[in-house]
Design a protein around this nucleic acid. Sequence first.
DNA 1: CTAGCCCTTTGATCTGTGTCAACCACGTTA
DNA 2: TAACGTGGTTGACACAGATCAAAGGGCTAG
Lengths: 252, 252
Amino acid sequence: MHANVKQNVIPLNVPGLKVACSQCNLRELCLPFGLAEEELERLDTLIGGRRKIKRGQHLYRSGDPFEAIFAIKAGFFKTDVLTEDGRDQVTGFQMAGEIIGMDGISTEAHTCNAVALEDSEVCLIPFAELESLSSEIRALQHHFHKVMSREIVRDHGVMMLLGTMRAEERLAAFLLNLSQRFTARGYSSAEFHLRMTREEIGSYLGLKLETVSRAFSRFQDEGLISVQQKHIRILDIPNLKALLGPPGGGRH
Amino acid sequence: MHANVKQNVIPLNVPGLKVACSQCNLRELCLPFGLAEEELERLDTLIGGRRKIKRGQHLYRSGDPFEAIFAIKAGFFKTDVLTEDGRDQVTGFQMAGEIIGMDGISTEAHTCNAVALEDSEVCLIPFAELESLSSEIRALQHHFHKVMSREIVRDHGVMMLLGTMRAEERLAAFLLNLSQRFTARGYSSAEFHLRMTREEIGSYLGLKLETVSRAFSRFQDEGLISVQQKHIRILDIPNLKALLGPPGGGRH
DNA sequence: CTAGCCCTTTGATCTGTGTCAACCACGTTA
DNA sequence: TAACGTGGTTGACACAGATCAAAGGGCTAG
């Protein structure tokens, strides 16, 4: 492991270089949010380094011992649960700035799989140390609780989607959610690249891939979006949002 | 704190009497789990008193400012989310020993409604004080994180149910889950009283009430359970469990 | 005890989505 | 450049569950 001595290039991940939340451009979205300067520096000492995950590789698997949570530095992940009988449910898609792995806290072992959908990089946050630091920095403790709570609220939203929405509403909600999260990261809200397959979208939304594909086509026919493989352009946000109000239009 | 001097009667809720986790018969299920004697006593000072909730009353409503979480001392609750357009999704049923209200942490306001399905009683846990005490008692902090994480894992289970199971599998999973939770509380695993309506079960399971009713009838015809209104007796747990392995029997 | 209402059950029919199948488009490898 | 494989689209048809409808049973409140 020898130092990388290329010049003119900002070196990343040079051995010995400490990862720094305080310098991270995602700090407003991620765990450091709301911490003071001095606290941020202490947070820097917490991060256990970075890890690169290639597309298709697992960040962790169900059953792995739980030791750390991860902050996504770059890239895109899916998490899924699978049962003995072969059922597979995608429980979420995670992007830069989001925290992943909190499912493992309860049993000291991960309860789902996390797979990179593109080449990605995560920051390791050793959990025992996070708890230590939390008890010293109240703002960190509180913020971490908010992050977990937000996950619970997000899950309730998915339950609502799976329990009450029709196929096209689900897909519209999904696209609007992605759009909004890309916006928060400074990317276009109208144009983006899907990192997941139709089957993965379907699993997340409780639909079959053919149904997802048909809904995409219908949206395109109606001028709401333009689809070309994984490239999506949202053309008519208002009408896409209007789809979320259910069929009749609000009654029943 | 002043001694209560009534004799022969165990006094409950007498004004001035401190609620005590250390004496609670639910402590092995609830927040105190795993704490040492001395820590338990400090936890006692945290509890902000009890509150009785009559059947049909709200413990909190979506939008209420978030100040405390609640430990259910006795009774039965449902939580639900509703959208502007009138959709209603039951996100869970909670019973004695369970913690409710963690959805409110993220935004400082509750994001769902909690309604008592029978006359109930909860212990108030002021959240700011819980965080304070957490930073002093590491075991409490860690246990609270486990409780939140367990909620996330539970939600993933519901997503799996809503995303991949057919009506009868959903109902079987629901009954087995209730049975298991009653068992953990020392009640019969085979015979219990449903506190919720068919419509509420349906909302939770992503089904219409008629479908729930039909599935109950089918189970009864097949000798798996006996149903009389809200009274349920589970007759054949093995075959009920077998329903969870999907139709074909594991393929696809 | 009675009236009223809500909850539940059951039947008949309709429909959104799943299933099965064929074909196509793109990206990768040889 | 050709051949392959994975992922995506589209069509025809089937079916689980929704919807509509009607009737019965048990609480709850007077």
